[in-house]
Design a protein around this nucleic acid. Sequence first.
DNA 1: TTCCAGGTAACGC
DNA 2: GCGTTACCTGGA
Length: 294
Amino acid sequence: MAVKAGELHKVETGSWPFDLAATLNSGQVFHWHAMGDGFAGVIGRKAVWVRQVEPGLLECTGGMAETVREYLGLGEDMAAMAATFPADDAALQRAVAWCPGLRILRQPSWECLATFITSSLKQVPHIRAISLRLRERFGELVREEGLPDQWAYPEPSVLAAAGEAALRECGLGYRAAFLVRTAETVASGAMDLGAVATMDDEKALEALTTLHGVGDKIASCALLFGFGRTAAFPVDVWIERVMRELYFPRARKLTHERLKTFARRRFGRHCGVAQQFLFHWARLTDCGRSEIGN
DNA sequence: TTCCAGGTAACGC
DNA sequence: GCGTTACCTGGA
């Protein structure tokens, strides 16, 4: 599908590298799809198409430049954050150098939290399929000239009203009950995500984990990718694996709490960002085993 | 067929 | 507290 060139707006990405494809395909978000030489997706309630023209420059469809900029985390000073990483940590520095253009997204908090609730014990293609089915069936249709039909992520009240059975039809399995209960809690106001955004990291994590189906990992993903908390450190099987190999090769028992404490001390106040570089590197190189020249 | 994957809640000790 | 186990689904 053709996107009218005249309606495209430019977004400068700054002096630190930026890699659109890597960022959208790094397990932070699951609904963008390749279209032409760019990506089509939805930010909040607006459909958008964005492509990387050159290393420091993006183009996006009309009126979305500022939204895209915010969503892609381009307002954050990545150079300054990377400068807080330990210079003598060869593994982390290698992970950053391997894909320096990776950024932490700033997604709307509800869709980020809800999507990660549906991610447990699922592989990325499954998460994508579930996410798209939920949008298609329960989300608001968003149209933009020149773009295919897309759907916003369904509001909490809509998913709460839909009920568990309908969500199971979307392939959620046992996650359906988790999502419905959490949607009810948010829709009723018993959990105010806006209030969570004002809490300190520890309180915010504590609040989110009271939600059904939200444990430490999913709450941390929501905080990192949906609340801009760069100190949130989700421990999933990939991070556990890469950190075990890099930092605890002889440890027999390694709790997630111990990994988080270690990460905070070693990587610093933006340890969540470090996590994303390590995660991406580990996943795409199989912890370095398939890294070219290694 | 059988196994298992980007986790959580519920249970047992 | 800490260690197991069940849980839906879909792909290998």
